[in-house]
C-alpha cells in the first residue's frame, strides 16, 4: 500500500498534511496544495450532499500511474493524494493533492496535472443529493478538454 495515496471516509487536516510534506524536507522550497470541497449548487440545482463511490484497487493503481507521469514531466519531491468516499455534506473536504518541489513552477504544474487526470482517469463516482432527489453525476466535457491540454 502506497502511503502517498489515501482513500478514506474520514476527514483530513490541511495543516497536518502540509506538515508531513515539509517534515525533514530541507531540499524543497515549494509546497503547493489543492483542496476540493462539496459545493451547494450544481447545474442549477441545490445540492444537500454527495455520496462518493470508487473501485478499490483500480483507484490506487490509477493514482499511482498519474503520480508517475507527473514525475516524468517535472522535478517534484513529495506527493500526497487523499480522496474521501461515502457520504459528504456541503462544505466538506473531498480531495487533497499536495506536491513539493525545489522551485515553485514544478509543484504548481504537477499539482494541476494530477488533479486534471484524477478527474478523468481515477474510478470515482459522485451521486448528488439534490432538491429533485438522488442523481449520479455525468462527466463534464470541460474536464476531458482540460486533461487533453497536457498532451
Amino acid at each position: 500500500m502506497n502511503k502517498n495515496i489515501s482513500i478514506q471516509t474520514a476527514d483530513f487536516s490541511l495543516a497536518d498534511e502540509v506538515a508531513l510534506l515539509e517534515q525533514d524536507n530541507e531540499i524543497d522550497g515549494a509546497v503547493v496544495t489543492f483542496t476540493g470541497r462539496v459545493r451547494n449548487k450544481n447545474e442549477g440545482l441545490k445540492v444537500s450532499g454527495l455520496f462518493l463511490e470508487h473501485y478499490p484497487g483500480m483507484t490506487e493503481l490509477s493514482l499511482e500511474k498519474i503520480i508517475a507521469s507527473a514525475r516524468k514531466r517535472w522535478n517534484i519531491g513529495r506527493v500526497k493524494i487523499i480522496h474521501r468516499i461515502g457520504q459528504l455534506k456541503i462544505g466538506e473536504q473531498i480531495v487533497f493533492v499536495g506536491v513539493t518541489s525545489k522551485h515553485r513552477q514544478d509543484a504548481f504544474a504537477a499539482n494541476e496535472f494530477i488533479m486534471d487526470f484524477l478527474k478523468v482517469k481515477a474510478p470515482f463516482w459522485k451521486k448528488e443529493l439534490t432538491e429533485e432527489g438522488e442523481k449520479w453525476l455525468g462527466a463534464r466535457n470541460t474536464d476531458n478538454d482540460k486533461a487533453k491540454q497536457w498532451d
Binding site: L52, M58, L61, S62, V95, K121, A122, P123, W125, W136
Partner: peptide, 28 residues
C-alpha cells in the same frame, strides 16, 4: 477496465481476468 487498467473494446480478455464496466468517472 481489465485487471484495474482502463481499456477499449478490442482489448483481449482471458480466464481469470477481472473485467469492470462503469460510467464516465466523476471524482475530484
Amino acid at each position: 477496465a481489465v485487471n484495474h487498467d482502463m481499456v477499449d473494446g478490442e482489448h483481449p480478455i482471458k480466464s481469470g481476468d477481472e473485467v469492470a464496466f462503469f460510467p464516465p468517472v466523476t471524482g475530484g
